[in-house]
Design a protein around this nucleic acid. Structure first.
Lengths: 143, 143
DNA sequence: GTATCTGCAAATCCTTTGCAAGTCA
DNA sequence: TGACTTGCAAAGGATTTGCAGATAC
């Protein structure tokens, strides 16, 4: 029930959604994570403090936050999705398919692509949180 | 048991894998499809000719072809993966999240990004078959 | 002949859903 | 109070797996 200074909680409240303890705990778990968290990881964090939550509540909260544009989803190719608060900034990831390393890439790196797609295809790409697969330098050396 | 001229079949044979009727039918289904096919669609095609195949055989064949680099997978955001033979050329897709339209994008459009990632991050991106989500021009007009 | 493949059935994994009970505003 | 939320349990859908029997080479 801490983390009442959460900016996401503020926005939820402003839009008329109830700030239940469960939701606040989910928000805290998302915002306290440096990395991107999975639903399962959020659930584990919340259960540690309040054993009666159900994972479906976590999924429902994440669904709501997605709809409201407060978190972004990313698929790093693990067979499950990870979440990240939008207000922590946009960035991308290079995922090495050999060693699993994840390299963070600045938002600007994809800015030009976004421009090209708009100019050439009149398509507004949503490149807020993208995973690009390939091989890192270290692994290429070892081949 | 047709489609013995399949280049994928050739490669499978060369590498010592058995060319079973099931595998040949799966290969034919992949190669005869203009679009990208899902496992379920491949299965449907094969069952039409040989009702005793099992979908797990389709999945196992696809797994093998992926490992050997003979097909690529693409996730167009449908909750299931689609497959495409590598030898039919590389290309990318813009997926409109409003209307579902899929716009094909030439390989060269992502070439520069590939260069940048290599130069800046020493990362060899595997951009052979990428889906980019966003909004198409038509849908943006209607907003 | 024998290692490789297949079919079958069941299991897995992540995620979603129906519903009755609980609770925030 | 009453609409919104939750917990529970069960379903959902795509994909994977164990195993015994079948088969390509």
């Amino acid at each position: 029930m801490d983390q009442l200074d959460s900016s996401i909680a503020d926005k939820l409240g402003q839009r008329g959604y109830r700030l239940t303890p469960q939701r606040l705990m989910v928000l805290a778990a998302i915002e306290n994570s440096d990395d991107h968290v999975s639903a399962e990881e959020i659930y584990a964090q919340v259960v540690a403090r309040y054993p009666y939550v159900n994972i479906s509540t976590v999924y429902r909260t994440l669904e709501l936050l997605k709809e409201l544009g407060l978190v972004t989803e990313i698929d790093l190719g693990e067979g499950r999705v990870r979440y990240h608060p939008v207000d922590k900034g946009h960035h991308h990831h290079l995922v090495c398919q050999k060693c699993g390393a994840i390299i963070d890439v600045d938002e600007s790196t994809l800015a030009r692509l976004q421009d090209v797609l708009l100019a050439r295809y009149n398509f507004s790409a949503s490149l807020r949180h993208v995973a690009i697969f390939g091989t890192c330098g270290k692994c290429r050396q070892q081949q």
